[in-house]
Design a protein around this nucleic acid. Structure first.
Lengths: 148, 148
DNA sequence: CTTGAAAATATATTATC
DNA sequence: GATAATATATTTTCAAG
Protein backbone atom coordinates (compact mmCIF):
# COMPACT_ATOMS: atom_id res chain seq x y z
CA UNK A 1 0.00 0.00 0.00
CA UNK A 2 0.83 3.64 0.26
CA UNK A 3 1.09 3.34 -3.48
CA UNK A 4 -0.59 6.67 -3.57
CA UNK A 5 1.82 8.93 -1.85
CA UNK A 6 1.52 12.53 -2.82
CA UNK A 7 4.27 15.07 -3.20
CA UNK A 8 4.02 18.83 -2.82
CA UNK A 9 2.98 19.27 -6.43
CA UNK A 10 0.08 16.88 -5.98
CA UNK A 11 -1.07 18.75 -2.91
CA UNK A 12 -0.78 21.99 -4.78
CA UNK A 13 -2.94 20.58 -7.58
CA UNK A 14 -5.52 19.46 -5.03
CA UNK A 15 -5.62 22.94 -3.57
CA UNK A 16 -6.07 24.48 -7.00
CA UNK A 17 -8.88 22.08 -7.82
CA UNK A 18 -10.51 22.63 -4.45
CA UNK A 19 -10.73 26.34 -5.20
CA UNK A 20 -11.96 25.70 -8.74
CA UNK A 21 -12.77 22.17 -9.79
CA UNK A 22 -13.10 23.12 -13.43
CA UNK A 23 -9.69 24.73 -13.70
CA UNK A 24 -8.03 23.43 -16.86
CA UNK A 25 -4.79 21.48 -16.99
CA UNK A 26 -3.40 24.21 -19.22
CA UNK A 27 -4.15 26.76 -16.54
CA UNK A 28 -2.67 24.72 -13.71
CA UNK A 29 0.47 23.65 -15.57
CA UNK A 30 2.33 26.98 -15.32
CA UNK A 31 1.20 27.40 -11.71
CA UNK A 32 2.88 24.19 -10.62
CA UNK A 33 5.74 24.49 -13.10
CA UNK A 34 5.01 21.37 -15.13
CA UNK A 35 3.78 20.60 -18.62
CA UNK A 36 0.10 20.14 -19.36
CA UNK A 37 0.62 16.43 -19.94
CA UNK A 38 2.37 15.98 -16.60
CA UNK A 39 -0.46 17.74 -14.78
CA UNK A 40 -3.04 15.55 -16.48
CA UNK A 41 -1.12 12.42 -15.57
CA UNK A 42 -0.96 13.44 -11.92
CA UNK A 43 -4.65 14.25 -11.72
CA UNK A 44 -5.48 10.99 -13.50
CA UNK A 45 -3.34 9.08 -11.04
CA UNK A 46 -5.03 10.71 -8.05
CA UNK A 47 -8.38 9.79 -9.54
CA UNK A 48 -7.36 6.19 -10.03
CA UNK A 49 -5.90 5.83 -6.58
CA UNK A 50 -9.11 7.25 -5.15
CA UNK A 51 -7.49 10.26 -3.50
CA UNK A 52 -9.73 12.26 -5.83
CA UNK A 53 -13.21 10.82 -5.43
CA UNK A 54 -14.79 13.11 -7.99
CA UNK A 55 -15.77 16.63 -8.88
CA UNK A 56 -18.93 18.50 -8.07
CA UNK A 57 -20.74 21.80 -8.34
CA UNK A 58 -21.30 24.02 -5.31
CA UNK A 59 -24.84 25.30 -5.18
CA UNK A 60 -26.38 28.18 -3.24
CA UNK A 61 -29.18 26.32 -1.51
CA UNK A 62 -30.82 29.50 -0.26
CA UNK A 63 -31.31 30.60 -3.86
CA UNK A 64 -32.91 27.25 -4.60
CA UNK A 65 -35.54 27.75 -1.94
CA UNK A 66 -33.93 25.75 0.83
CA UNK A 67 -32.51 28.53 2.94
CA UNK A 68 -32.87 26.84 6.30
CA UNK A 69 -30.24 24.46 7.53
CA UNK A 70 -30.43 22.25 10.61
CA UNK A 71 -28.79 19.33 12.34
CA UNK A 72 -31.00 16.73 13.98
CA UNK A 73 -29.60 14.30 16.51
CA UNK A 74 -31.32 10.95 16.36
CA UNK A 75 -31.56 8.20 18.90
CA UNK A 76 -32.60 4.78 17.64
CA UNK A 77 -34.05 1.69 19.26
CA UNK A 78 -31.35 -0.60 20.61
CA UNK A 79 -31.85 -3.21 17.94
CA UNK A 80 -31.17 -0.89 15.01
CA UNK A 81 -28.07 -1.58 12.93
CA UNK A 82 -25.86 1.12 11.49
CA UNK A 83 -26.96 0.18 8.00
CA UNK A 84 -30.60 0.60 9.00
CA UNK A 85 -29.82 3.97 10.51
CA UNK A 86 -28.13 5.25 7.37
CA UNK A 87 -30.84 3.84 5.13
CA UNK A 88 -33.63 5.23 7.23
CA UNK A 89 -32.24 8.71 7.65
CA UNK A 90 -31.02 9.18 4.12
CA UNK A 91 -34.42 8.45 2.65
CA UNK A 92 -35.70 12.01 3.00
CA UNK A 93 -34.58 14.15 0.07
CA UNK A 94 -34.03 17.09 2.42
CA UNK A 95 -31.27 15.17 4.15
CA UNK A 96 -27.84 16.21 2.93
CA UNK A 97 -25.69 13.97 5.09
CA UNK A 98 -25.97 11.39 7.86
CA UNK A 99 -23.23 10.74 10.41
CA UNK A 100 -23.36 7.75 12.68
CA UNK A 101 -21.97 8.69 16.05
CA UNK A 102 -20.28 7.02 18.99
CA UNK A 103 -21.80 7.60 22.39
CA UNK A 104 -25.25 8.28 23.68
CA UNK A 105 -26.69 9.54 20.45
CA UNK A 106 -26.73 7.47 17.32
CA UNK A 107 -26.80 9.75 14.33
CA UNK A 108 -26.43 13.36 13.35
CA UNK A 109 -28.43 14.36 10.31
CA UNK A 110 -27.67 17.45 8.26
CA UNK A 111 -30.71 18.79 6.42
CA UNK A 112 -31.78 21.72 4.29
CA UNK A 113 -35.38 22.88 4.22
CA UNK A 114 -37.56 25.63 2.81
CA UNK A 115 -38.96 26.96 6.09
CA UNK A 116 -39.83 25.98 9.63
CA UNK A 117 -42.99 24.17 8.65
CA UNK A 118 -40.96 22.13 6.22
CA UNK A 119 -38.40 21.37 8.95
CA UNK A 120 -41.19 20.19 11.22
CA UNK A 121 -42.48 17.95 8.48
CA UNK A 122 -39.09 16.35 7.82
CA UNK A 123 -38.49 15.73 11.51
CA UNK A 124 -41.92 14.12 11.79
CA UNK A 125 -41.09 11.95 8.83
CA UNK A 126 -37.84 10.83 10.48
CA UNK A 127 -39.58 10.13 13.77
CA UNK A 128 -42.32 8.22 12.01
CA UNK A 129 -39.92 6.01 10.10
CA UNK A 130 -39.95 3.32 12.73
CA UNK A 131 -37.02 2.92 14.98
CA UNK A 132 -36.33 6.53 15.94
CA UNK A 133 -36.95 6.96 19.65
CA UNK A 134 -35.73 10.51 20.16
CA UNK A 135 -34.61 13.63 18.35
CA UNK A 136 -33.07 16.99 19.13
CA UNK A 137 -32.74 19.62 16.45
CA UNK A 138 -30.10 22.32 16.19
CA UNK A 139 -31.02 25.22 13.94
CA UNK A 140 -28.14 26.69 11.99
CA UNK A 141 -27.95 30.47 12.14
CA UNK A 142 -24.85 30.86 10.03
CA UNK A 143 -21.98 28.86 8.74
CA UNK A 144 -18.45 28.97 7.48
CA UNK A 145 -16.87 26.29 5.32
CA UNK A 146 -13.24 25.83 4.44
CA UNK A 147 -13.29 26.64 0.75
CA UNK A 148 -14.46 23.34 -0.69
CA UNK B 1 -35.30 39.72 -8.53
CA UNK B 2 -36.47 36.26 -9.18
CA UNK B 3 -34.32 36.86 -12.20
CA UNK B 4 -32.77 33.52 -11.43
CA UNK B 5 -35.68 31.20 -11.74
CA UNK B 6 -34.72 27.79 -12.87
CA UNK B 7 -36.67 25.48 -15.13
CA UNK B 8 -36.48 21.72 -15.26
CA UNK B 9 -33.55 21.79 -17.66
CA UNK B 10 -31.53 23.95 -15.29
CA UNK B 11 -32.26 21.55 -12.44
CA UNK B 12 -31.25 18.67 -14.64
CA UNK B 13 -27.96 20.39 -15.45
CA UNK B 14 -27.34 20.98 -11.75
CA UNK B 15 -27.91 17.31 -11.05
CA UNK B 16 -25.52 16.30 -13.82
CA UNK B 17 -22.87 18.66 -12.52
CA UNK B 18 -23.41 17.51 -8.95
CA UNK B 19 -22.62 13.96 -10.00
CA UNK B 20 -19.64 15.07 -12.07
CA UNK B 21 -18.56 18.67 -11.90
CA UNK B 22 -16.18 18.28 -14.81
CA UNK B 23 -18.77 16.90 -17.20
CA UNK B 24 -18.41 18.73 -20.51
CA UNK B 25 -21.08 20.86 -22.13
CA UNK B 26 -20.88 18.58 -25.15
CA UNK B 27 -21.66 15.62 -22.96
CA UNK B 28 -24.55 17.30 -21.19
CA UNK B 29 -26.13 18.80 -24.31
CA UNK B 30 -27.65 15.59 -25.69
CA UNK B 31 -28.74 14.52 -22.20
CA UNK B 32 -30.89 17.62 -21.78
CA UNK B 33 -31.82 17.84 -25.45
CA UNK B 34 -30.18 21.18 -26.19
CA UNK B 35 -27.24 22.44 -28.19
CA UNK B 36 -23.83 22.83 -26.62
CA UNK B 37 -24.08 26.62 -26.80
CA UNK B 38 -27.44 26.61 -25.04
CA UNK B 39 -26.06 24.47 -22.22
CA UNK B 40 -23.10 26.78 -21.79
CA UNK B 41 -25.38 29.82 -21.66
CA UNK B 42 -27.51 28.21 -18.96
CA UNK B 43 -24.53 27.22 -16.84
CA UNK B 44 -23.01 30.68 -17.30
CA UNK B 45 -26.29 32.24 -16.26
CA UNK B 46 -26.49 30.11 -13.11
CA UNK B 47 -22.93 31.08 -12.27
CA UNK B 48 -23.68 34.78 -12.70
CA UNK B 49 -26.85 34.65 -10.67
CA UNK B 50 -24.94 32.89 -7.93
CA UNK B 51 -27.05 29.73 -7.97
CA UNK B 52 -23.81 28.01 -8.89
CA UNK B 53 -21.22 29.20 -6.38
CA UNK B 54 -18.38 27.26 -7.91
CA UNK B 55 -16.89 23.86 -8.60
CA UNK B 56 -14.66 21.73 -6.45
CA UNK B 57 -12.86 18.43 -6.14
CA UNK B 58 -14.01 15.75 -3.72
CA UNK B 59 -11.11 14.30 -1.80
CA UNK B 60 -10.82 11.08 0.19
CA UNK B 61 -9.58 12.50 3.48
CA UNK B 62 -8.80 9.10 4.93
CA UNK B 63 -6.28 8.56 2.13
CA UNK B 64 -4.71 11.90 2.96
CA UNK B 65 -4.05 10.85 6.54
CA UNK B 66 -7.04 12.47 8.18
CA UNK B 67 -9.28 9.49 8.60
CA UNK B 68 -10.99 10.57 11.79
CA UNK B 69 -13.98 12.85 11.66
CA UNK B 70 -15.71 14.50 14.60
CA UNK B 71 -18.19 17.18 15.53
CA UNK B 72 -17.46 19.34 18.53
CA UNK B 73 -20.18 21.39 20.16
CA UNK B 74 -18.88 24.63 21.59
CA UNK B 75 -20.31 26.90 24.23
CA UNK B 76 -18.91 30.43 24.38
CA UNK B 77 -18.80 33.13 27.02
CA UNK B 78 -21.92 35.30 26.93
CA UNK B 79 -20.11 38.30 25.50
CA UNK B 80 -18.83 36.52 22.40
CA UNK B 81 -20.19 37.72 19.05
CA UNK B 82 -21.02 35.41 16.18
CA UNK B 83 -18.15 36.87 14.20
CA UNK B 84 -15.76 36.07 17.02
CA UNK B 85 -17.08 32.54 17.21
CA UNK B 86 -16.57 31.91 13.50
CA UNK B 87 -13.14 33.51 13.51
CA UNK B 88 -12.01 31.63 16.57
CA UNK B 89 -13.20 28.21 15.52
CA UNK B 90 -12.14 28.41 11.90
CA UNK B 91 -8.57 29.19 12.82
CA UNK B 92 -7.53 25.56 13.24
CA UNK B 93 -6.69 23.99 9.89
CA UNK B 94 -8.33 20.74 10.97
CA UNK B 95 -11.68 22.50 11.09
CA UNK B 96 -13.73 21.87 7.97
CA UNK B 97 -16.83 23.83 8.84
CA UNK B 98 -18.33 25.89 11.63
CA UNK B 99 -22.06 26.25 12.19
CA UNK B 100 -23.43 28.81 14.59
CA UNK B 101 -26.45 27.40 16.33
CA UNK B 102 -29.62 28.64 17.98
CA UNK B 103 -30.31 27.41 21.49
CA UNK B 104 -28.22 26.36 24.39
CA UNK B 105 -25.11 25.58 22.43
CA UNK B 106 -23.37 28.14 20.30
CA UNK B 107 -21.46 26.38 17.58
CA UNK B 108 -21.01 23.02 15.97
CA UNK B 109 -17.57 22.43 14.51
CA UNK B 110 -16.85 19.79 11.92
CA UNK B 111 -13.25 18.59 11.97
CA UNK B 112 -11.00 15.98 10.40
CA UNK B 113 -7.95 14.67 12.22
CA UNK B 114 -5.23 12.08 11.89
CA UNK B 115 -5.89 10.15 15.09
CA UNK B 116 -7.27 10.46 18.59
CA UNK B 117 -4.22 12.26 19.92
CA UNK B 118 -4.59 14.77 17.16
CA UNK B 119 -8.27 15.20 18.00
CA UNK B 120 -7.37 15.83 21.62
CA UNK B 121 -4.87 18.43 20.54
CA UNK B 122 -7.33 20.31 18.33
CA UNK B 123 -9.97 20.34 21.04
CA UNK B 124 -7.44 21.68 23.52
CA UNK B 125 -6.52 24.36 21.03
CA UNK B 126 -10.16 25.36 20.66
CA UNK B 127 -10.69 25.41 24.42
CA UNK B 128 -7.56 27.44 24.91
CA UNK B 129 -8.52 30.07 22.38
CA UNK B 130 -10.14 32.27 24.97
CA UNK B 131 -13.88 32.45 25.15
CA UNK B 132 -14.79 28.78 24.90
CA UNK B 133 -16.42 27.71 28.15
CA UNK B 134 -17.51 24.20 27.25
CA UNK B 135 -17.21 21.48 24.64
CA UNK B 136 -18.73 18.12 23.82
CA UNK B 137 -17.32 16.00 21.05
CA UNK B 138 -19.18 13.54 18.87
CA UNK B 139 -16.98 11.01 17.11
CA UNK B 140 -18.13 10.04 13.66
CA UNK B 141 -18.17 6.28 13.05
CA UNK B 142 -19.47 6.40 9.52
CA UNK B 143 -21.18 8.76 7.16
CA UNK B 144 -23.32 9.06 4.10
CA UNK B 145 -23.52 12.14 1.91
CA UNK B 146 -26.00 12.93 -0.81
CA UNK B 147 -23.77 12.81 -3.81
CA UNK B 148 -22.20 16.25 -3.66
C1' DC C 1 9.23 6.09 -13.32
C1' DT C 2 8.30 10.77 -14.66
C1' DT C 3 8.68 14.34 -17.98
C1' DG C 4 8.04 17.50 -22.25
C1' DA C 5 6.79 18.34 -26.95
C1' DA C 6 4.03 17.67 -30.74
C1' DA C 7 0.16 15.88 -33.29
C1' DA C 8 -4.58 14.50 -33.46
C1' DT C 9 -8.95 14.84 -31.45
C1' DA C 10 -12.44 16.94 -28.64
C1' DT C 11 -14.32 20.77 -26.44
C1' DA C 12 -15.23 25.67 -25.44
C1' DT C 13 -16.32 29.97 -27.05
C1' DT C 14 -18.04 33.51 -29.97
C1' DA C 15 -20.67 35.49 -33.76
C1' DT C 16 -24.65 35.30 -36.59
C1' DC C 17 -29.23 34.10 -37.50
C1' DG D 1 -32.23 28.38 -29.05
C1' DA D 2 -29.33 26.49 -33.30
C1' DT D 3 -25.54 26.42 -36.35
C1' DA D 4 -21.07 27.28 -37.87
C1' DA D 5 -16.47 29.24 -37.44
C1' DT D 6 -12.60 29.96 -34.49
C1' DA D 7 -9.83 29.50 -30.38
C1' DT D 8 -8.52 26.38 -26.48
C1' DA D 9 -8.06 22.28 -24.16
C1' DT D 10 -7.52 17.33 -23.82
C1' DT D 11 -5.49 13.16 -24.95
C1' DT D 12 -2.28 10.10 -27.08
C1' DT D 13 2.15 9.13 -28.69
C1' DC D 14 6.91 9.09 -28.54
C1' DA D 15 11.46 10.41 -27.42
C1' DA D 16 14.37 11.53 -23.54
C1' DG D 17 16.24 12.61 -18.58
Amino acid sequence: MASHELDDTDHQLLRLLQADGRRTFSEMAPEVGLSVAAVKRRVDRMRESGVIKGFTVQVDHAKLGRGIEAFTELRFAGTTSVGDILASASRAPEVQAVFTIAGDLDALVHMRVRDIAHLQEVIDRLRGSGKVIGTRTLMVLGSWTRDD
